[in-house]
Nucleic acid binder design. Structure first.
Lengths: 111, 111
DNA sequence: CCCCTTGCCTTGGCCGTCTAGGTATAGAAG
DNA sequence: CTTCTATACCTAGACGGCCAAGGCAAGGGG
């Protein structure tokens, strides 16, 4: 099949990339933002979040730098060019996937 | 989190249930139907399809009977009441999930 | 006879997610 | 002072659905 079969698992990465695309942010805040923007639907677990961040940094989709605010160390992430490209691809893949599902369901799930 | 975290993996089961809900059908045909209705996007692999069918039959979401057409043995599946309920739940979960994703993306992906 | 299509099945690996745990600081509550 | 919560990072190991790749069998066209 022409779809990325790992798309389903990869949704988390897309969500993280999307949030980071809005501007430099860090793990804890990403988790909060994803929760808020999905109206509480998503609750990114640390066991998914941090491994994903590390994975994506290794793949050079993200770059990172440490900062300290109010005595708290934060690891900030920034989107790379490659990360932006990947995000665009993942969004296109998500669109195709959801259209595929809705096609089978014969439904119109308009956001 | 309140969502079924296995929802992403479970999409395949929802698609199968939806097709079977249209009337008794068998594995090979389900695979074809899903492919057609998603405009070629999905191509259900046998390694996903048959285990899923067996799983769902064991969970009593589906009942089955063998039939022979043109010398070909086919294992037909029928949706049970429980299967219909599960399908409804999965569709609702899918709607919530896709709305959650689209909420984070800030997009309107109207099928 | 060979190959493609139809039609069913299973084994074993992959790998993202989650559970559950750890570390550490700041501030509020007791 | 101690305890609890929120903030903030991390990891090891289990889990389990998906897929690649294989097997079996029958029909029909070349």
């Amino acid at each position: 099949m022409h779809m990325d079969s790992r798309l389903l698992w990869g949704t988390v990465e897309m969500l993280i990339l999307e949030v980071v695309a809005q501007g430099p942010t860090y793990g804890y805040e990403i988790s909060q933002t994803v929760g808020e923007r999905s109206r509480g639907y998503f609750d990114l677990k640390e066991g998914s979040l941090y491994p994903a961040l590390h994975r994506m940094e290794q793949q050079k989709l993200l770059t990172s730098f440490w900062d300290e605010v109010d005595g708290r160390r934060r690891k900030y992430y920034k989107l790379s060019i490659k990360g932006q490209t990947t995000l665009d691809e993942k969004k296109a893949a998500w669109k195709a996937f959801s259209q595929g599902v809705n096609g089978v369901l014969g439904a119109q799930f308009a956001g």
